[in-house]
């Protein structure tokens, strides 16, 4: 049963996630809420691992979630669920792909979908930030206690990372894996989890 559910959840994700990389994140975040298969903090870890290992990010995240939920068969089923809609859709429209791409309705739909997808990723990003800085699962549940528990160490690291990834020329071009590893070291040295 869990396998069927897993396949269905990833089938939906594969069918409806639009764009590259993080486009699946909002779907996975919603999956964490509705199924309880994994936590938001596990999901953030999966993003980091998926970004720093070979393979398309969306595929890596599906494999990871599948493994976390139901072991090796889960990894396989989630990944197959993710790619099945692509295979079906592409094979169906393969005959008239060129006219599909030039179709004004298709263009118009994607002009609307891209900003929507960006908005969805912003919302998921905010919930990762709420968890990282306030220790709560989403923006709406930030309470006064959570504000008092604000993680200043995390903020300092975030500001430094923003500067080196956006504004300093020589470090801007480095692969994200460099910053993920550096953050891991900082996390251990300054015991970010407080253990």
């Amino acid at each position: 049963m869990i396998y069927l559910l897993l396949f269905w959840e990833f089938f939906k994700t594969g069918l409806l996630a639009v764009g590259g990389g993080l486009a699946t994140l909002p779907f996975l975040s919603n999956m964490a809420d509705t199924t309880g298969w994994f936590t938001h903090s596990q999901l953030a870890d999966m993003v980091a691992v998926s970004e720093s290992t070979p393979g398309p990010m969306g595929v890596n995240m599906a494999t990871y979630v599948g493994y976390t939920t139901a072991g090796i068969p889960g990894a396989l089923i989630a990944t197959l669920g993710l790619i099945t809609p692509s295979i079906i859709v592409i094979l169906i429209i393969a005959g008239f792909l060129k006219s599909f791409r030039d179709n004004r309705f298709v263009n118009s739909v994607f002009l609307c979908l891209r900003p929507a997808s960006t908005g969805l990723i912003v919302a998921s990003g905010l919930s990762v930030a709420a968890m990282t800085f306030f220790g709560v699962s989403d923006i709406a549940s930030i309470t006064l206690d959570a504000v008092k528990a604000f993680d200043w160490k995390a903020l300092v690291l975030a500001v430094i990372l923003l500067v080196v990834t956006r504004w300093i020329k020589p470090t801007k071009k480095l692969h994200p894996i460099v910053w993920i590893l550096a953050s891991a070291v900082v996390g251990v040295v300054f015991s970010f989890a407080g253990v």
């Binding site: 990003g125 995390a154 990834t165 953050s183």
Partner: peptide
């Protein structure tokens, strides 16, 4: 601890991607 540090980085990477 390592993953607590990494999560901060994930926030920044998501921001950059956005």
């Amino acid at each position: 601890n390592a993953f607590a540090g990494i999560r901060v980085c994930v926030c920044v990477l998501i921001f950059n991607a956005v």
